[in-house]
């Protein structure tokens, strides 16, 4: 069942910049959706429109069956937003800012919930500290706590781990999974492939304001996954022998490796014939391995094709 339906969403800024062009996207309840794209692709604009920070040029957004303009109150109560930049007050106490956020979204005070939230995000010990005393990582957790303070059904995380150290990134991933277990739908933007690969159920690839692909992560990786065969040669080659030209392999590691990329799902991968030809030519190799290409390779390929198309 869908919780978010975006149709025909477009944004042209006053400067004439087209940030988004006709985005259609449906998000399922309880899923983790990663919006993947380079900087300036339109990810933040899209989130901004859904959350009320940016006025769309056209298009509609339906959240849990409610139109985001007509029923903006109901819609916004369901949404929590963690923006990319660290925007915090300086002089407030941590716990006061969380209470403020909850009240701002119209929720009655709930000290037990706030305590649990702060403990979850390891901020409870800092509850009486001024926000300006917190480290960068803590401030980011504080912003997540603020976004979760009104118990939203949908959480938007805009580049949640940009400029965050490895440990905090792991914490963040754990937290996102815990939230999903509670039924929260999570939409995150990232330009780290690793992040999408690690966490998302589905991935949308956005570039130049266009959503060029939406796919289950596993399917995406299978469908577009190319494999790479690497042969470790006994004696380095200086050039590709003409007899191998039809496979279009490449030399790597200063001629010590012969690399052949192939489509793992193709009927004829070309691997057996290549190996036969290699031994016919008397090229010795000590080892071979194949590797599934990562989401990153897929992404680069997609963005590249999207731009040249």
């Amino acid at each position: 069942m869908s919780i978010l339906e975006i149709s025909g969403l477009a944004k042209v800024y006053a400067s004439g910049t087209v940030a988004l062009s006709d985005i259609d996207l449906t998000i399922q309840r309880g899923e983790i959706f990663a919006l993947l794209g380079p900087n300036g692709a339109g990810k933040t604009t899209m989130i901004g429109i859904i959350c009320g920070l940016v006025t769309p040029t056209r298009g509609t957004v339906i959240v849990d069956g409610k139109d985001f303009r007509q029923s903006y109150r109901k819609v916004r109560r369901k949404i929590g937003l963690v923006p990319q930049e660290l925007h915090t007050d300086a002089f407030e106490k941590v716990i006061d800012t969380i209470r403020f956020s909850r009240a701002l979204f119209g929720k009655a005070a709930n000290p037990a919930f706030i305590e649990e939230l702060l403990r979850d995000l390891t901020l409870w010990d800092k509850r009486d500290a001024q926000v300006q005393e917190l480290s960068g990582g803590m401030k980011r957790r504080l912003m997540i706590a603020k976004a979760l303070s009104h118990e939203p059904d949908i959480l938007f995380l805009d580049e949640p781990t940009a400029g965050v150290d490895v440990e905090l990134r792991r914490d963040m991933w754990r937290m996102v999974r815990r939230l999903r277990e509670r039924g929260v739908t999570i939409i995150l933007t990232t330009h780290y492939i690793e992040e999408a690969e690690e966490m998302a159920d589905r991935v949308g690839v956005i570039t130049g304001g266009k959503l060029i692909l939406v796919e289950e992560k596993q399917v995406l990786m299978r469908k577009l996954g190319r494999k790479r065969l690497t042969l470790n040669l006994d004696t380095p080659l200086t050039a590709i022998p003409v007899e191998l030209a039809e496979w279009r392999p490449e030399l790597a590691a200063e001629g010590h490796e012969l690399v052949y990329e192939f489509d793992a799902r193709a009927e004829k991968t070309g691997v057996p014939s290549l190996l036969r030809r290699v031994s016919d030519l008397g090229i010795g190799f000590s080892d071979l391995n194949t590797r599934q290409s990562s989401l990153e390779d897929i992404f680069v390929e997609l963005v590249h094709n999207g731009q040249t198309a």
Partner: peptide
């Protein structure tokens, strides 16, 4: 100026 206006704009406030 601080950027915290994002929260106000995204809140269910008329």
């Amino acid at each position: 100026w601080t950027g915290t206006i994002y929260e106000l704009l995204s809140s269910p406030l008329s």
